[in-house]
Write a protein that binds this DNA or RNA. Structure first.
Length: 895
RNA sequence: GGGAGCAUAGCUCAGUUGGUUUAGAGCAUCUGCCUUACAAGCAGAGGGUCCUUGGUUCGAAUCCAAGUGUUCCCACCA
């Protein structure tokens, strides 16, 4: 780096030293606004200001509402990149709606997340040396609430750093007293209506912890197991049938052998009786298409008590259910053999015994996946137990219908197929969970196992009494409800819709947009829709915007365990919230995964800086009265350009194409406003700007800031106030709408840009300094080239001549907008290279012309294509011919 | 095993009911620049077998079929 200039930054004032300009000074203070944008204090300042002015708060009034309910993050959660993306999008939507004059209401809150919270509390207790099993339910819940008060909701305060304009006065929690009671009321209501029932279900059992596990608490591992081939004797015969099993110890609980009905090998056995080895129990041989002919031997042993499919099979064929295990995983009396031994010890003994009696045919290795308990790492056992279910088929009709008919729109709509498939094959929803943290199921049992469903013990006793059933020592169900059985009421309960149906729910419901991840489309979104139609008789939201998953550069999902996720708060501190918001949005079209790269955030920061410097430029000008007419063309062009951008941006937003809207703004601001417009109107250094141009430029900047505010709230608010002193804040300013677009001005500006770029290219390629004057010649009719004035005034050192014939030496030509331009240069140009360049273009144009001519000479095309298309082709042909003519002329000239 | 999606520049993606050129953007790359708003910058350039093979059509990146690759969801793995 040459030592001609030095910059110094002393206490935010920038000092500048230049030996030519200021030979006698060391440093000169030139400006009090710092050269780079520093977000930290600015962000805190404006967030507090917005809060003080209650801009985020909403009460029903005469305006049209725009409502978003936040997907409540786990109360235990900390902010991760997924939240950043998701909440940035919500904030963009809500801020834009607010500026559009709507009553914007964004309801924040958290989800009690029964499983993960309970796991965290259990973990904390373990560290304190307390076992969950040593506590009563109430003691445990007390710890859980303490934990929630201490650590819960950190995530919400983190969202503030991002700039989220939630109505914090409305913060909700799925276990708030009112919410809790809604969940219970809904259970009772659905039970009364017959949509909730009790049924047997195979659940996951952890024999070590002696507790049931929910599906989410089981993790599967691929392991190499042994597949044992065991011979079962056919009764009254010397024949055997061989089955393959990975769990020989469950042979003791077999109730049938099953083969495929079309399996010829075994047809002769169907209907006969087989004899269980070792214990000699007689079991039937049945046929069912469930069995795969190609697996193992094609014959399956059926153990209804210890396998879900076998249970279903058992139900279908009315087989005996023989439970051979105790709760701790040891064999019970039903097994007859090896009673009291652990299941894995028993397995070895069974195998040894089978071998001894000659009924073990062979053993093979088999790769299969085995479920383990997340809590104890024990192999999970399947166990039959009574659970609560919601009949989904009967209540999900409207939820499917209203997505298919477009009443609820999914963005992107490719998810409709997935949604449809799920809804059409919906299975009953098991809503009981074997946990303590959550909404306790309002069912009460007497000593005989009779039950009633009631909110309180008193009401339950009353119900028992009415039914004339004994109700001494009744006790409440131990289980709690699935988390989704509370969060499906979220858009209703946060507005107290169940208890106060005539209240503000009538104003805010249905909400407008839900922003969430596709992975919970069924778990949560579909269920909210179902609940909406049951309890409010209306959809919960009109649009669902599905975001992608945030992944790292290797496309791995970002997760704590992989340690591949940056801490969002660190990013905000380093780059500023606006930069992070922009960076996240830049690469996240709806429904697509986003590959996170810190470079994107850097790009966001650079964009902030660009805008900041545009402001510095404008603020640095001295203003004099007047109107510099030279700027008129640029002003007209940029006005058209900006209106066009605003129009496009608004269309993209309305279509939920947020990253497209963003890119449109980005290039309009960076390229058109900064690189073209400001460069054009910028007075020479040290000279003042005329007031008219200044005022118009500030007005342009104003509209740009407003357009950008939803995406980058902090910097826009700051510059909005630096630019002009004013009363109002940008957060509640009117969102810009496009006025009429002067398409002529727009087109001419774009053409002029193209010519200028091409001239710059000529300079770059021929090493001609920007300071060197050039003449510009135009072949043909100058009136066809109205934007030439723009080019001339922009470049200053270029003159245009109308040229009909020419014998200029050392000329370089280029084409723009169907017009040929000539630049005579003082340098010796490489004629062969110029010729080759021209020849290349001619070849291209001729090829193009051929393809057009081929189309036009095709009778079927002329007959079949619409007139409009044919006209376009004819015009293309004429244009290409003209271009070729021009190029050939240029080529001739080179000799 | 059932279902859905995706495949376009080195990367991430647009490409609107098939027709505005022989396909666009951002990033990355390359070249030249300390130029009084910004080197976190400016100016310019290069880069594509639109996965493959068929089909429909006057016309296919776009519609259809098959294949290949890939991702996700659900169920399960005797």
């Amino acid at each position: 780096m040459q030592e001609t200039k030095k910059w110094r930054n002393y206490s935010n004032h920038l000092y500048f030293y230049h030996p030519k300009c200021f030979p006698n000074l060391i440093f000169v203070k030139i400006m009090e606004i710092s050269k780079t944008y520093s977000p930290a204090e600015i962000e805190d300042k404006w967030y507090s200001h917005w809060m003080e002015n209650k801009y985020f708060h909403s009460e029903p009034d005469g305006r049209e509402p725009y409502t978003i309910v936040i997907p409540p993050p786990n109360v235990t959660g900390v902010l991760h990149m997924g939240h950043m993306l998701n909440n940035t999008i919500q904030d963009v939507l809500i801020r834009r709606a607010r500026m559009m004059g709507k009553n914007a209401c964004w309801v924040p809150g958290t989800d009690h997340a029964s499983i993960s919270t309970e796991a965290k509390v259990v973990g904390m207790l373990r560290e304190m040396g307390i076992k969950k099993s040593s506590l009563t339910r109430d003691q445990f819940l007390e710890y859980a609430w303490q934990w929630k008060e201490k650590y819960g909701g950190i995530i919400l305060s983190q969202l503030k750093k991002l700039g989220a304009s939630c109505d914090w006065e409305r913060t909700s929690f799925t276990m708030d007293p009112g919410y809790y009671s809604d969940v219970i009321d809904v259970f009772i209501e659905l039970y009364k209506r017959g949509f909730i029932y009790r049924g047997l279900r195979m659940i996951n059992w952890d024999p070590e912890a002696k507790t049931a596990l929910s599906n989410e608490e089981v993790f599967y591992k691929d392991v190499i197991s042994k597949l044992y081939y065991v011979k079962y004797k056919i009764k009254d015969s010397e024949q055997f049938i061989t089955v393959a099993t990975t769990r020989p110890e469950t042979i003791l609980g077999d109730s049938a052998i099953c083969v495929h009905p079309e399996d010829e090998r075994y047809a002769k056995f169907v209907g006969k009786t087989a004899i269980v080895p070792m214990i000699n129990r007689e079991i039937p041989i049945i046929a069912d298409a469930y069995v795969e002919k190609d697996f193992g031997t094609g014959a399956l042993k059926v153990t209804p008590a210890h396998d879900e499919n076998d249970y279903e099979l058992g139900k279908k064929h009315q087989l005996q259910v023989i439970d051979t295990f105790n709760d701790d995983g040891t064999l019970n009396a039903n097994a007859q053999l090896f009673v009291g031994l652990d299941r894995f010890v028993a397995r070895k003994k069974v195998v040894a015994l089978l071998e001894e009696i000659g009924q073990l045919e062979k053993v093979e290795d088999l790769k299969n996946s085995v479920g383990y308990s997340e809590r104890t790492n024990a192999v999970v056992e399947k166990k039959l137990s009574m659970q609560w279910f919601v009949s989904m088929k009967e209540i999900s009709g409207p939820a499917l219908e209203n997505v298919l008919n477009g009443n609820i729109r999914l963005h992107p709509n490719k998810f409709i197929n997935t949604y449809k498939h799920w809804m059409e094959n919906v299975r009953d929803w098991c809503i009981s969970r074997q946990l303590w943290w959550g909404h306790r199921i309002p069912a009460w049992y007497n000593e005989n196992g009779d039950f009633v469903v009631a909110k309180t013990q008193v009401q339950a006793e009353k119900l028992f009494k009415e039914k004339n059933i004994a109700y001494k020592n009744i006790r409440q169900d131990d289980d709690v409800l699935d988390t989704w059985a509370s969060s499906w009421l979220w858009p209703i309960s946060v507005f107290d819709g169940l208890k106060n149906p005539e209240g503000e729910i009538t104003y805010y419901y249905p909400t407008n947009t839900l922003v969430t991840a596709p992975e919970i489309l069924f778990f949560w979104v579909a269920r909210m829709v179902i609940a909406g139609y049951i309890f409010e008789d209306d959809k919960p939201f009109s649009d669902v915007y599905l975001t992608g998953i945030v992944r790292d550069k290797q496309r791995r999902k970002m997760s704590k365990s992989l340690g591949n996720s940056p801490d969002p708060l660190d990013l905000i501190e380093l780059y500023g919230a606006d930069a992070v918001r922009l960076g996240m949005l830049l690469c996240s079209p709806a429904g697509n995964d986003i590959i996170f790269d810190e470079k994107l955030i850097e790009q966001g920061r650079n964009f902030n800086n660009k805008i900041w410097n545009a402001m510095r430029l404008i603020k640095g000008w001295e203003i004099v009265d007047g109107d510099n007419k030279n700027n008129a063309v640029a002003i007209k062009w940029f006005d058209a350009k900006l209106n066009n951008t605003i129009k496009t941006v608004n269309t993209h937003f309305d279509d939920f194409r947020i990253s497209d809207a963003l890119m449109e703004m980005y290039s309009c601001i960076w390229d058109d406003f900064c690189s073209w417009y400001l460069e054009f109107i910028k007075p020479e250094f040290g000279k003042p700007i005329d007031k008219r141009t200044y005022d118009i430029t500030v007005a342009f900047f104003d509209r740009i800031l407003k357009m950008l505010h939803p995406v980058m709230p902090f910097i826009t608010e700051e510059i909005y106030h630096i630019l002009q002193e004013r009363m109002g804040d940008i957060i509640v300013a009117d969102y810009p709408i496009a006025s009429e677009i002067n398409t002529d001005a727009l087109q001419q500006g774009e053409m002029a840009k193209d010519v200028i770029s091409k001239i710059r290219d000529v300079r770059a390629k021929n090493s001609i300094s920007p300071k060197e004057s050039l003449n510009l010649f135009i072949m043909g009719d100058k009136t066809r080239f109205a934007h030439v004035d723009f080019v001339i005034s922009k470049l200053g050192n270029i003159s245009a001549f109308e040229q009909t014939t020419s014998d200029i030496e050392n000329v370089i030509s280029f084409i723009s907008g169907g017009q040929t331009f000539y630049l005579p240069v003082n340098k010796k140009i490489d004629i062969d290279q110029e010729k080759a360049k021209l020849q290349e273009q001619i070849t291209y144009q001729k090829g193009f012309l051929m393809s057009v001519e081929k189309k036009l000479s095709n009778e079927k095309f002329v007959a079949g294509a619409p007139d409009q298309v044919i006209d376009i082709e004819r015009k293309k042909k004429a244009d290409a011919e003209e271009k070729i003519r021009m190029l050939e002329l240029s080529l001739q000239k080179l000799g």
